[in-house]
C-alpha cells in the first residue's frame, strides 16, 4: 500500500487517508490477531457459555437430567449454607493472608533496603518460596503439619499451643490456618519485591534532608517512607486481594475444602463442584455470583482510587 509513488496521479488526501488507515487500523492488528483469537476463544467465549450454563442443569453424572431451568441454580445457591460459609471463609482467608503477607513483606523489604554482607545470596534464598510450584508448597506444608513426619505439631504441643501433637488440618476450628500459613510463606516475596522497588525509588536526599531537619528514624519512616509508598501500597494490596481471594490451589491440595467445609472458599467451591460432583450448571452459578461480587469490588476500587487521587 505504501510504496514509491512519484507519479502523483492519486489525489493526496486519499493517499494520506489510506496510509493513515493502514497505520492505525490494519498494521497493529497484524501483530495482535493471535493474542485476540486465543483470548477470545479460550477466555471470553467460555465465559459467555459459562453464564448460559448457570441457567441450565448440566450434571455429567446425570446426563438425562439436562435442560434450561431458569433461576433454579441461583435459588439453590441462595439457600446453600455451604456457599455462605464459603463466603465467610473467603473473607478470613483473604484478610488474614494479606495482612501477614504485607506486614512481613514490608519488614523484609526494609531489611533488604539496608546494607549487609551476603545480601545478594540472602535475597535469592528468601525469594525462593515464590518460585516453588504451588502444588508443591501445598504438599510440603501439609506434610509439615502432619504429626507423623512433620515437626510442627510437636513443636506447637511443646509450646503449649496444642494440647497434644495432632494435625490441625483435621480440626475444623484451626484447619484454615494451614493454608493461610502456606500462603504467607508463598506470598511474602511478592510484597517484598514490589515494596523494595518502591522503597528504592524514594530519593535518598529526602532522608538526608529529614535527618538534617532533626527527624528520628521512626519519624522519617512515618513522615517520608509511608506517604511515599501509600499509593503503590494501595494499588498492590487491592489487586492482590482479588488474586488471593480466588487462589484455590493451596486449599484444594491441603484440605480439599474440608473438614466439613470449614476451609472451603468460593473459588475452591466452584472447583470441587465442577471437578468432584461434575455439576457444571451449579458450578457456573457460583462462578457468576463470584463474578458479580468481584465487579462490585472493582467498582468500589475505582471509586476509592478516584477519592484518593483527588486528595
Amino acid at each position: 500500500m505504501i510504496d514509491k509513488a512519484s507519479d502523483g496521479a492519486t489525489p493526496g488526501s486519499e493517499r494520506a487517508y489510506r496510509s493513515f488507515y493502514w497505520r492505525y487500523m490494519v498494521e497493529p492488528y497484524l501483530y495482535l490477531t493471535p493474542a485476540l483469537v486465543l483470548i477470545g476463544g479460550v477466555m471470553m467465549f467460555p465465559l459467555i457459555i459459562g453464564i448460559s450454563y448457570s441457567f441450565q442443569s448440566i450434571e455429567l453424572l446425570r446426563p438425562f437430567n439436562t435442560g434450561w431451568i431458569g433461576l433454579d441454580n441461583y435459588l439453590d445457591l441462595w439457600s446453600d449454607r455451604k456457599f455462605w460459609l464459603a463466603l465467610e471463609n473467603t473473607f478470613w482467608w483473604t484478610f488474614l493472608s494479606i495482612s501477614f503477607q504485607f506486614t512481613l513483606g514490608l519488614g523484609l523489604a526494609m531489611l533488604l533496603n539496608t546494607h549487609f554482607y551476603g545480601k545478594r545470596l540472602f535475597q535469592t534464598l528468601v525469594f525462593l518460596p515464590w518460585a516453588v510450584p504451588t502444588f508443591l508448597s501445598a504438599l510440603t506444608w501439609s506434610w509439615l503439619f502432619n504429626p507423623v513426619i512433620g515437626p510442627l505439631p510437636h513443636w506447637m504441643a511443646g509450646l503449649g499451643i496444642l494440647s497434644e501433637p495432632y494435625n490441625i488440618l483435621g480440626d475444623p476450628d484451626l484447619a484454615l490456618w494451614g493454608p493461610i500459613v502456606a500462603n504467607i510463606w508463598f506470598g511474602i516475596p511478592f510484597f517484598a519485591i514490589t515494596l523494595l522497588a518502591a522503597l528504592q525509588s524514594i530519593p535518598s536526599e529526602l532522608y538526608e534532608a529529614a535527618a538534617i531537619d532533626g527527624a528520628s528514624p521512626w519519624q522519617s519512616f512515618t513522615k517520608i517512607t509511608l506517604p511515599f509508598l501509600a499509593p503503590m501500597i494501595a494499588i498492590t494490596v487491592m489487586l492482590r486481594t482479588i488474586w488471593i481471594a480466588n487462589f484455590a490451589d493451596l486449599i484444594f491440595v491441603m484440605t480439599g475444602g474440608g473438614p466439613a467445609n470449614s476451609t472451603q472458599i468460593v473459588s475452591s467451591y466452584i472447583f470441587t463442584t465442577a471437578f468432584r460432583k461434575l455439576d457444571f450448571g451449579y458450578a457456573s452459578a457460583i462462578a457468576v455470583a463470584l463474578l458479580v461480587l468481584l465487579m462490585m469490588y472493582a467498582v468500589f476500587l475505582l471509586w476509592l482510587r478516584k477519592k484518593l487521587v483527588k486528595v
Partner: peptide, 23 residues
C-alpha cells in the same frame, strides 16, 4: 483491548473451568 486484558488478569480463571472442559 488493554482494558480487556487487564480484566482477564483480575478475574479468577476457575470461573470458566466447566465450559472449558465441555469445549
Amino acid at each position: 483491548i488493554v482494558a480487556l486484558m487487564l480484566i482477564t488478569q483480575m478475574f479468577p480463571l476457575l470461573m470458566i473451568i466447566a465450559p472449558i472442559y465441555k469445549i
